[in-house]
């Protein structure tokens, strides 16, 4: 497989705390991967390892390179927007363009100017004069003007209102995603990125819960909505998750034939957020049983 990212036993400790516990997953070229997990799951640590911003053990290749070595060369093909990494407040918009043009061989100034012309951002403004949404627009315009093969976004829309969040993902979908370029997004707002995703990586407490394509998810997992009289029969099929909603039950199944489920009630695709919650709760129950 032509992998953009390949990890094998990726591990990271902060003192005695294990932030990543032997993660192994692959990101194929052209994929849009959602890294999903609760706070403290290890999402940011995993992304930092991919970017060579933190030391790690295990094997990790990003575009065929070890990010821990000569990361500045790797950054010609990789770019990222971090949840905490902000554009410096003193920087003028025009100087931001000058800077990126001066240091990045694959930056298109024309493209950046075009993208910025669709916003209310003034080239002579300083970052500190822009709203949070405009700063994100500026950062995105800079990143979109780079001809990189992998873009990593760590909670890129944190703190933005819904209008900016929608515009952000629309632009991303329209301008970045293609067969050649890959995107890795970590976010809490799974619903907003769900239509973009081609692959999922679920993390919980530093461990990999699931890594597969969204096609595989639709084939493997299904949600069954049943009336109370059919609930016991449905439970016999060993759902991985269950919740009660307005007098009806919703159960999530892993690798149970759809025909078998359809006999009991209405079968739907499983939303990513529901699947994630079900898998994490199932993991926790398993851990509790083992304890």
């Amino acid at each position: 497989m032509n992998s953009v990212v390949s990890t094998q036993g990726l591990t990271k400790h902060y003192g005695s705390h294990a932030a990543l516990k032997g993660l192994s997953f692959e990101v194929p070229a052209g994929a849009v991967v959602g890294i999903i997990g609760p706070n403290g799951a290890g999402k940011t640590t995993a992304l930092k390892a991919l970017l060579g911003l933190t030391a790690f053990s295990g094997e990790l290749q990003v575009l065929g390179r070890n990010p821990g070595k000569r990361r500045h060369e790797m950054m010609q093909d990789v770019c990222y927007i971090s949840d905490v990494g902000i554009l410096p407040r003193w920087l003028k918009v025009a100087d931001a363009l000058n800077y990126v043009e001066g240091v990045h061989p694959r930056f298109s100034r024309q493209r950046a100017v075009e993208l910025l012309s669709t916003t209310d951002i003034d080239m002579n403004s300083q970052v500190k004069a822009l709203s949070k949404g405009m700063i994100t627009q500026l950062h995105l315009a800079l990143v979109m003007s780079l001809d990189v093969r992998l873009l990593i976004l760590d909670e890129p829309t944190l703190g933005l209102d819904i209008v900016y969040r929608k515009a952000f993902y629309d632009r991303l979908l329209a301008d970045f995603v293609d067969d050649r370029r890959s995107l890795i997004i970590s976010t809490h707002q799974v619903e907003e990125i769900e239509p973009l995703l081609t692959h999922l990586v679920f993390l919980n407490s530093g461990q990999l819960v699931l890594s597969c394509s969204t096609d595989e998810v639709s084939k493997r997992f299904a949600t069954l909505q049943v009336a109370p009289d059919a609930i016991e029969a449905a439970r016999q099929l060993e759902p991985i998750g269950e919740q009660q909603l307005l007098g009806r039950y919703q159960l999530i199944f892993d690798s149970v034939p759809v025909e078998q489920l359809a006999a009991l009630g209405e079968v739907r695709l499983t939303p990513i957020a529901d699947l994630f919650v079900a898998l994490v709760l199932a993991e926790r129950q398993k851990e509790n049983r083992n304890d």
């Binding site: 911003l53 000569r70 500045h72 790797m74 554009l87 990045h104």
Partner: peptide, 16 residues
Amino acid sequence: DGSILFWKSMPVSDGL
């Protein structure tokens, strides 16, 4: 101010 992560998102070595 966290801007180091922006600077480090560019292909510039720490040495330079």
